[in-house]
């Protein structure tokens, strides 16, 4: 298990490095000088030269990449083009907001999704099963940002129940500001998780070891919990691990629509002012988190089911 974990960790680090290299390479493939791009067309030649040296653009590309990775290892992601503040500080100031939003969204939706999926598998062809099926297809068909717009429209504009702007101050205010965004992001995941758990429950329920447990006279509740559900949630765990990338995409929209602080809002404003170091730093951090999440979900699956460890 430890060897497997170590192997996967090294691979993850390599993947993040390749991902960042791709973005940096793209910047160089595109015609035009990145320094000119950042400073705008009216910059003086001296200023452009100065920025090039400051950003290390005067050196050959492999050296640039190496310096960049070296800096990352020291926790240095470069400086904000306009204010000169360190990018790492700016990114990590915004990151907690996004992480809280994403975690709350995924927790409520995974819990409800597993519950609905398991119940509809156990009680097939009842009204709950039909309702879950319809809800799954319906919610999956609505992108998170459309869901967010409807959440604002219905609960904030028409009903006026919940606030739609900002992250709030203090604990309770913060929670009331979190409900609509977390709803908008999570709703589609209830459908995804319920669908996949239902399908894999049905599959596991017919396996020999379940019949065996039943033949031994184990109580039905116990069979469901420790013999069926434990195996049946695995595809859902994998889905959630790979789904973190989609969650970050959804968070970008939700943070813009609800005017919340966070890494998505940070990236959008940085793109608007063409603040490339911030964009690159934020992309690096989100990619790192996504790769880490995939790694964790793989390890959880390996822990739940030792068979998965082999052949990897």
């Amino acid at each position: 298990m430890l060897y497997y974990a170590g192997q996967r960790l090294v691979l993850s680090v390599v993947i993040v490095m390749v991902a960042v290299s791709i973005l940096t390479l793209m910047m160089h493939v595109v015609p035009g000088d990145p320094a000119v791009m950042i400073l705008g067309p009216r910059a003086t030649p001296e200023l452009i030269e100065q920025t090039r040296v400051a950003m290390g653009l005067d050196k050959p590309l492999p050296i640039q990449l190496l310096t960049f990775f070296g800096n990352i290892l020291r926790g240095d992601l470069g400086q904000d083009v306009f204010t000169g503040r360190p990018v790492s500080r700016i990114v990590f100031e915004q990151l907690p907001y996004t992480l809280i939003l994403i975690s709350v969204s995924i927790l409520w939706s995974a819990a409800l999704g597993i519950l609905l999926g398991a119940y509809s598998a156990l009680r097939r062809n009842t009204w709950l099963d039909t309702l879950t099926g319809i809800l799954s297809v319906g919610t999956i068909s609505i992108p998170a940002f459309v869901m967010a717009l409807y959440a604002v429209l219905i609960f904030a504009v028409w009903l006026g129940w919940l606030p739609a702007i900002g992250a709030g101050r203090g604990f309770w205010d913060g929670i009331s500001h979190l409900i609509l965004p977390a709803f908008a992001i999570g709703v589609a995941w209830v459908g995804y998780v319920a669908r996949i758990v239902r399908a894999s429950m049905l599959e596991v329920m017919g396996e020999p070891h379940v019949r065996m447990a039943r033949a031994f006279g184990l109580p039905e509740r116990r069979i469901t919990r420790s013999h069926i559900l434990k195996i049946a949630v695995q595809p859902a765990v994998t889905l959630l691990g790979t789904g973190v990338a989609h969650l970050f995409s959804a968070a970008v929209f939700v943070e813009v629509i609800f005017a919340r602080p966070g890494i998505g809002a940070l990236i959008v404003s940085a793109v608007n002012e063409r603040n490339y170091p911030i964009v690159l730093g934020a992309v690096l951090v989100t990619t790192g988190i996504i790769v880490l999440a995939t790694l964790i979900s793989d390890l959880v699956v390996a822990w739940l089911d030792p068979r998965q460890r082999e052949g990897m």
Binding site: V252, I267, V279, T287
Partner: peptide, 12 residues
């Protein structure tokens, strides 16, 4: 490439 969130990659 798959580890980028599509929208974040798009913004970059």
């Amino acid at each position: 490439l798959r580890s980028f969130p599509v929208i974040v990659f798009g913004l970059a």
